[in-house]
Write a protein that binds this DNA or RNA. Structure first.
Lengths: 218, 218
DNA sequence: ATTTATTTTTAGATTTGCCTAAATTTTATT
DNA sequence: AATAAAATTTAGGCAAATCTAAAAATAAAT
């Protein structure tokens, strides 16, 4: 029933490589993900298949079983809740938390995770904008997120706003930003969190972190 | 430099058995503490001696070296800080946190522990009344003793408990005894070692020697 | 002071997770 | 389609942490 830390890491690797679809993942990709030799992966795949966590056909690749998918979801939930804790409560920067969360995600206690979730106000997305699976391990994919955590050099579309105040909405009008506006992040300034963005593939402007945080894009 | 989880558990066991003194601990006691076979302990002692964490003489027992003592102190610090977090922030009861803290104490990150300590307000004692070692692993002993050897007709304050079992802690809850409770010894019964005590200058109850032994007062 | 009992260590195995090298299967190329 | 290249698996081993059973050392008892 309970998996070892190594098993959990393989399940998580397969999950990340298959992106919650039923996509088939190959041995070398897993070996690269968990930084181990391909032969070691083969050994582990046999064990995971015995435990019915994956569907495995020699030479043809693997995909997660229903149980494996839920187990992966629970591990990812723990990882993302801990990352949220580290950033929100302990004031880590979002780029400093991954390795610590890799350790914390293996702590075994449903009660602990339930209380941690409550303590954090049952967040639905983590500090990187990734969705947090529910207690059963189900992940509801979220496509929209604040512009502050959207990918650089990518075009995003404004889907909603995170603030309804007139001062905010008036400013958007001035900047010619509305629902449906295309925004491309040109550069992120470390200093104050402001963003250099291209609006509708036309003019380039600089917007504050405060403003970007309230632009929900997809 | 970095120890495995198993090594840390042995170091911690020796620490708890020798009570921060240089007392010699024997193999069977360690085996009992870490719930393993005596032969396994011998194997591990050789490894820890190679790493200069203990002073080991075959058949004669072990004691922690200076480095071993500091390592134990750091592990205990982590354990007690996490217990404080679980009780203070996640609202666990004090008798529910031990096993989870046993897992959390092995998370590797000085930065994390530094921030956790700050987040908790740099507590000096944990929810059981035990002192929290400093960041280097130094433990400042607290002048406290079991109620069984405390002076009669004198008021004492519960400082910590000598047993972490939930049956014991639950009994204390029932008796309305917690850290900080004032206890005055009214009478000592020769027959069974039980004590007639006055709780917080109010009700008088009789407590067993077994219970009194585990009430650490100052 | 011998003998008996207890404690501790050694010897030999097992399991888990990992490795390299060789064999096999699949995929790509000429 | 035959061969070369790449991916995968099998085979055989290793280190860590554990075990049981036997041997050795120490402590207790007659």
């Amino acid at each position: 029933m309970t998996a070892t830390v190594a098993e959990e890491n393989y399940i998580k690797a397969i999950f990340h490589l298959s992106k919650n679809e039923n996509k088939v993942v190959n041995t070398n990709a897993i070996a690269n993900e968990v930084q181990t030799a391909a032969a070691t992966v083969t050994d582990m795949l046999k064990k995971l298949a015995d435990k019915k966590l994956i569907k495995y056909e020699p030479y043809k690749g693997v995909s997660l079983s229903k149980n494996g998918l839920l187990m992966a979801g629970k591990i990812v939930r723990k990882h993302r809740l801990w990352e949220t804790f580290l950033v929100e409560k302990l004031n880590f920067k979002w780029d400093e938390v991954h390795e610590i969360a890799e350790q914390l995600e293996h702590i075994q206690s449903d009660d602990l995770i339930g209380r941690l979730d409550k303590f954090l106000g049952s967040p639905k997305i983590d500090p990187h904008g990734d969705p947090i699976p529910d207690a059963e391990g189900n992940l509801i994919p979220i496509t929209s997120k604040p512009l502050t955590i959207a990918s650089s050099h990518d075009v995003h579309t404004v889907a909603s706003v995170g603030d309804q105040s007139s001062s905010f909405l008036q400013m958007l009008d001035k900047l010619k930003i509305s629902i449906g506006t295309k925004i491309k992040i040109v550069e992120k300034h470390e200093f104050d969190g402001s963003l250099q963005v291209k609006i509708n593939n036309q003019n380039i402007i600089n917007i504050s972190e405060q403003l970007a945080k309230n632009l929900i894009v997809k």
